[in-house]
């Protein structure tokens, strides 16, 4: 016998998000189908790792003598170096202290790597992937999100420089100098990006892409782009850096920045560097936040409505 008056809040919540989780399962199947149809192999790499890829502002939760991975990047790159030409992975990643409407400390990342491409060709692949998988899962190439339709057949690209100039009347370089890059991006640029089509922001300042190749004709910019749907950041892509000397230099800058910010030091992944020294062909990589994409596809207002269980934010003293 069910006692309706005693129904736990947790079960009420899980019932409410059931259709989202059903969609999530269906969509993951479509994603895997797409990758298998395009000759990718699915890979699993360790979640507990010794050397997180260093980033200025991304922190890995410690786990005993290890860390929980913030991304599967370096292991996947070692596979590419060993001749795995097309690989993908869907799995959990962790970022300490990141909890909000669009963030959960533990989240699901889709990453894929492919040999012989650059970030422009990768964009064409992403367009095909989204069109194909979303159409199969929803029956439409229009996404209804927050009262508007996002048309997957119409795309718009901005360079970071153009977007900052058009929406904020400043340059990314100046914003970085004043420590305002992120505030301007979230308060002036992102809210003004078109919401009726997918948007690409590309060519980030070199200092904001420690693992990306620089543009041949302008070494102050990195071959990096980000995908936005409905004003929400969904995916980040690079033409991957394959020059070991340059990679070491970039990591050293990040180590130095983290030291200044009093953040934990991460050891360099020596196997990753050995692979770079051995030599790699040009390749691309992309990381896509599965939870956020599902949020957009199910028109969910909060990331917590597309994840079955989320741990509450660690509480510190509240006055």
């Amino acid at each position: 016998m069910l006692n309706e008056s005693k129904k736990p809040d947790d079960l009420i919540r899980l019932e409410k998000i059931k259709s989202n989780l059903e969609f999530r399962s269906r969509y993951l199947k479509e994603l895997r189908n797409y990758f298998f149809a395009n000759d990718f192999i699915e890979i699993e790499t360790p979640v507990m790792i010794q050397s997180p890829a260093p980033e200025d502002y991304i922190n890995a939760p410690p786990a005993g003598d290890f860390f929980l991975r913030t991304s599967p990047e370096l292991h996947m790159k070692r596979l590419v170096a060993a001749g795995y030409k097309k690989i993908f992975q869907i799995g959990p990643c962790f970022r300490e202290g990141e909890t909000g409407t669009l963030h959960n400390v533990e989240f699901s990342m889709l990453e894929w790597y492919e040999i012989g491409k650059d970030y422009n060709k990768l964009l064409i692949s992403l367009q095909k992937l989204l069109l194909n998988t979303i159409k199969n899962a929803t029956g439409s190439t229009l996404i209804s999100f927050r009262g508007r339709a996002i048309d997957l057949n119409e795309w718009k690209s901005y360079t970071v420089r153009d977007a900052f100039s058009e929406f904020a009347g400043t340059s990314p370089e100046k914003a970085i100098e004043n420590g305002e890059f992120e505030i301007i991006l979230t308060e002036k640029v992102e809210p003004n990006l078109p919401k009726d089509r997918p948007v690409i922001l590309k060519d980030y300042p070199a200092s904001m892409a420690a693992l990306s190749r620089l543009k041949e004709d302008d070494s102050s910019l990195a071959e990096r782009w980000e995908l936005y749907l409905g004003g929400i950041e969904i995916a980040n892509a690079y033409s991957e850096l394959i020059d070991p000397g340059e990679q070491r230099k970039r990591f050293d800058i990040v180590h130095e920045n983290r030291k200044k910010l009093n953040l934990p030091k991460y050891s360099d992944d020596s196997d990753f560097f050995a692979a770079l020294e051995y030599g790699m062909d040009s390749y691309t990589g992309i990381a896509l936040g599965i939870d956020r994409l599902i949020m957009v596809l199910t028109d969910a207002p909060n990331i917590r409505e597309v994840i079955s269980f989320t741990e509450p934010r660690k509480s510190s003293a509240v006055v």
């Binding site: 980033e55 200025d56 502002y57 991304i58 990141e98 909890t99 909000g100 409407t101 669009l102 963030h103 420590g179 890059f181 992120e182 991006l185 979230t186 992102e190 922001l201 980030y204 904001m208 892409a209 980000e226 950041e233 980040n236």
Partner: peptide, 8 residues
Amino acid sequence: FCKPGKGQ
């Protein structure tokens, strides 16, 4: 909480 593009 927000954290745009690997930034702070």
